[in-house]
Design a protein around this nucleic acid. Sequence first.
DNA 1: AAATGGATTCATCCTAAAGGAGAATCCACC
DNA 2: GGTGGATTCTCCTTTAGGATGAATCCATTT
Lengths: 202, 202
Amino acid sequence: MVRQMTPQDVERVSPSGHYIALRIGFAFPMEEINALPTDWIDHYTKNRLMLFDPVMRWAYANTGFMRWSDLRGDDPHGVLTMAAAFGLRFGLTVAVFDENLEGHRSFASFTRPDREFEDLEARLLVAFLTRRHLEMLPPTNLTNAELEALAMVKDGKRLKQIAFDLGVTEGAVKQRLKNAKVKLGAHTSTQAATMARQFKLI
Amino acid sequence: MVRQMTPQDVERVSPSGHYIALRIGFAFPMEEINALPTDWIDHYTKNRLMLFDPVMRWAYANTGFMRWSDLRGDDPHGVLTMAAAFGLRFGLTVAVFDENLEGHRSFASFTRPDREFEDLEARLLVAFLTRRHLEMLPPTNLTNAELEALAMVKDGKRLKQIAFDLGVTEGAVKQRLKNAKVKLGAHTSTQAATMARQFKLI
DNA sequence: AAATGGATTCATCCTAAAGGAGAATCCACC
DNA sequence: GGTGGATTCTCCTTTAGGATGAATCCATTT
């Protein structure tokens, strides 16, 4: 009997760090969680390793899971060797994809210094990513009026100013924001604005 | 005498759409502005053209400007030919890079249906991107206390709850948020929270 | 040790703004 | 003519914002 993985479980099973990219649309994801070692991040960034990283290529083109050791022979620039030198010796990358919807893709990499990931761990991590992917599904039922108000809140405007700019009453603006909060499941307008931004709705 | 380009100038000089990625760190940018034609976005996304796009490769590896026609002969998958079929017949890509700082990179592509971009336009667009790149430089002087409060505001918590969770008074929380607003140049806590999120500070 | 200066944190008071409930109105669509 | 969704308004409560000054922390110097 295996339960769902929590973020704590992920940290435990991936002690050298992990990386999650959620809902890649055109080119870049809605949310990126980078819990890899700082020195590796610096090295990767400075040397633009993304261009040569076989893991990235795999993650953009496949679904399911893959151990980094499966890519030996497909790493002409030695990115995985470099990663190992930074303590990321064993890696597992998982990817999911929305066929039907807008073609969103998510992927995540998990790393260990000591041993390969087991099949059970891999399946649990696929389930974990799938859950995060689904949670990040953007709502589609916000009206333009609601998004317009949220965008102005995000930009630091006051309700009074927003009402004036839109040519409606302050109460109307409040109602639009309230609707937006309900649809997004947000407690406050601030949360609604940051959520809408994360979903790339504004 | 040539002045700075405004966003309106950019739309005028790039009538088939443009794309801007600001401050790419590890792999993905802090902000993405995608004003390309919708049908091209769909096609690009569905077919994961990013993997094969020579423009992306150029943008990650160079600085300055480049006309897409310079890449003929380096496009084995015919991405540029497909783009032309969607009305993006002439393209210009510009890229800038922070050598000294955290190694951030920004790039942008501009497209026309009718003619090549001129050198003057290219230089103005480099200047435009450079300005946007510098504006997006994240502040580094926010304290942990300030970021902690901002993160809780972003998550929809009320000041009273934040104060309780942190074990301080509500007035103290207000002061932290006020400091954060000043440092970020934000009018409201909402704006401060969304800015901090955009800068990947929280 | 004591003193100093500067930044951060905390408290209080008051004002301005946001949040919430309920009802009326508008409007496209059946 | 009815229905449901979206918009608008009013009234009231709760919360956030702004100004000010005191307290605390911390590194440096005397």
